[in-house]
Design a protein around this nucleic acid. Structure first.
Lengths: 124, 124
DNA sequence: CTTATTGTTCGACAATTCTCGAACAATATA
DNA sequence: TATATTGTTCGAGAATTGTCGAACAATAAG
């Protein structure tokens, strides 16, 4: 993978709207939940039913928002939550989000496969 | 205005991803900041440079996410933060977001007028 | 009843985001 | 060197979101 994959914003570059936007997606929240459950996690080990390119897209959004950090480990990439940075910048935000996604609830699966809904327009 | 404008999700219908998504926009965060500063606020009194229809769009997103409540007051509409509901569902979330947007920072103005960037393709 | 005020909705258009197959790229292994 | 593994990027297409003028709608005032 490219070295630029591990490039991430410094603490001072992290912006609240961007962080909230990155978190405003059920799939990315599930990624957060799984990382939080293991402290750090390799890309290939997430329990998410979707193509690699889709997952890469979401990892990139989280990384560029400054929510996760990434570093290589051989051919794999390890992700972790930037808890210290986020707690320093927005005290209480990350913990309340994590608490909110740990709750047992009737939420739909984190998978949001839009393409699955595709069908020829003639059927509409 | 229509009665359905004041229709909003009940506490049990509020979902974290939708709330975070609604907050992941600088204009809507500024709306929150101004409501928070005055406890409740009429639509027409916000210090935001944008057409009414654009503002209505953002009010609708915040309302449907369950972040704000709305009720009519003559021809005007009054908005307030659903602090009790949000604190009960996601303790600490709202206060940390509000703390994050109160900070004096070099953030760009809340106005994000995309159309202002429009220009004939021939100039590109 | 007419006019004013506030705010919404409609519809069109632009911008952004999401999805994913295929190709690419870095590292590790044989 | 060739192959395997992991993950990215590209590019196309679809879906979603944002913007805003014009028209609409409810309430209030004259």
């Amino acid at each position: 993978m490219a070295l630029k994959t591990t490039k991430q914003p410094s603490r001072s570059e992290i912006q609240l709207p961007v962080v909230l936007h990155a978190l405003g997606d059920p799939i990315r929240l599930e990624i957060l939940r799984q990382i939080d459950a293991e402290d750090k996690k390799e890309c290939g080990t997430f329990n998410l039913e979707m193509p690699k390119s889709s997952l890469s897209h979401h990892f990139r959004v989280l990384r560029e928002a400054g929510v996760i950090g990434t570093r290589p480990n051989g051919t794999a990439l390890i992700n972790w939550l930037r808890t210290d940075d986020l707690d320093d910048l927005f005290p209480g935000l990350l913990s309340s989000v994590l608490q909110g996604i740990r709750k047992p609830s009737k939420r739909s699966p984190a998978k949001r496969n839009r393409r699955a809904r595709l069908q020829p327009k003639s059927l509409l």
